[in-house]
Structure formats: C-alpha cells, structure tokens
C-alpha cells in the first residue's frame, strides 16, 4: 500500500517568500498580505532597514564608522511609520466625511500594501546602490543617486496604490479623492520627516551621529529660501 507523499512545511515562510507573495498578490488584492493587518508592516520592518543599511554604507570608510548604516537602518522604518501615524487621523476623517467609512479597511490595506511595495522596491535596489558606491562617487552624487532610487521606489508604490484602489474607485469616485488626499499629505509630511531624521547617507569625515548636531529645521523653508535666493 502506497501513501501519497505530502511535504510538510517545516520552514517558516521567509521574507523572500512573503515578499514574493506580496508582489504577486498586489494585483489580485488577495493572499497572505491581506489576511493580517500587520502583514505589510512585517515587510516594511524587514526590508526598509536593509535598504537603510545599504544607503548608509556610503560613509563607512573605517571600522569606527560602521555604526552609521545601523543608525540609518533604524531610521528608515521610523520615517515610514511616523509619517503614516501622523497622516492617519486626517485620512480617517476625510474617509468618514466622504462617506467611505465602510471601505476604510480595504483603503488602509491598499495604503499599507503600497508602503510595503515601496520598501520592497528599495530593497531590490540595494545591490544597485552598493554597486554604485563601489564605483566611487562624491557625497553630492550619492545624495542624487539615492534620490533617484527613492523616486523609482515611490513610483512602484504609486502603481501598487492605483491597482489596489482600482476596485474602490469603481465603487465610488470619491475614493480617488481620498487617495490623492493621502498621497499629498503623506508626501508633504514625509519630506519634512526625512529632513528631520537626517543624515540618511552620512558624510565621510563627519562624526557618526543619529541626528545632525544642528537644531531641527524645516525643509520647506530651506526650499523657499533657495527658490527666493534668500
């Protein structure tokens, strides 16, 4: 008598398989990534620090500076999580006022899914970043290079957000307004959060620090002064 062989899963799902699941479930809006509210956050917590460490590797020119990538690895999920927390009350109230509360769970899953996708995209770009650093580049070039990496990852997140929101927007066009409200608010707060949590790359020769030693300042004031020539 023969019995069918049934493989027993003995190994816990790895970050890779979870990431694969997320990537494939994005379009369908199904799978494990939607089963638990915290599933996308696991991806964020696993992948954002890895890209942060790669990004911070730029300033490691001696064993003493190895703490810099560690700091940046810690700051990456803080950047995403704190920005999300600050924007959540406004997004919730806007959804309520637009009469979209019954779909809020799905909208929220779409947003957290997009954030997970952004960090996965960043993680996938980490080897590219390390490769670029290995070729030798100045600090300003490294800043520009990482800006491009973030732009690419944000683009991927936007695609995921649009796909996830497709069903919601078919239910009501007001979901589109709520989505754009989120995108604008998140971008506005995220830029300042990123500015506050600097440095994200680190400058060789400067002391290793979690925050810059200068007092907190405002990114938009700096931009306005640059634009105004002030």
């Amino acid at each position: 008598m023969s019995t069918a062989f049934t493989p027993t899963p003995t190994i816990a799902p790895t970050i890779a398989s979870r990431a694969d699941g997320l990537l494939r479930d994005v379009r369908a809006g199904t799978g494990w990534a939607n089963r638990r509210w915290y599933s996308p956050w696991i991806v964020v917590l696993m992948s954002a620090p890895l890209y942060g460490a790669a990004m911070g590797w730029f300033s490691v020119d001696s064993p003493a500076r190895v703490l810099m990538p560690v700091y940046i690895a810690i700051k990456m999920p803080i950047l995403i999580g704190a920005t999300t927390l600050l924007c959540l009350p406004g997004f919730f109230v806007i959804n309520s006022i637009l009469g979209l509360r019954s779909d809020f769970g799905e909208a929220w899953r779409a947003i957290t899914g997009a954030q997970a996708a952004m960090t996965l995209a960043l993680l996938s770009l980490a080897p590219v970043t390390l490769f670029a650093y290995a070729g030798g580049m100045g600090h300003l070039d490294a800043v520009r290079f990482n800006a491009v990496m973030f732009t690419l990852a944000t683009g991927a997140a936007q695609v995921v957000l649009f796909v996830r929101y497709r069903r919601l927007r078919a239910l009501s066009p007001r979901h589109g307004w709520a989505m754009w409200f989120w995108v604008i608010l998140y971008g506005f707060v995220g830029i300042q959060m990123g500015w506050m949590l600097r440095p994200f790359i680190g400058t060789p020769g400067k002391p290793v620090a979690f925050f810059r030693e200068e007092p907190f300042s405002n990114a938009y004031v700096v931009i306005a002064k640059l634009l105004g020539g002030g």
Binding site: F92, V93, M193, V221, A224
Partner: peptide
C-alpha cells in the same frame, strides 16, 4: 463641527512641524 474635526485631525501634523520649525512665517 465638520470644519473643526478636519482641523483637529490635522493637528498632529501641525504639532510635528511646530517641533521642527523655527520659521514663524512658515
């Protein structure tokens, strides 16, 4: 009430910018 509810929900964002901004005009 609707106006102030939206304002209050954006309050944490205002508080965050306040902590990091010294520009009165901003």
């Amino acid at each position: 009430v609707v106006n102030l509810a939206v304002g209050a929900s954006l309050g944490p964002i205002l508080g965050f910018f306040t902590l990091s901004t010294s520009s009165y005009h901003f």
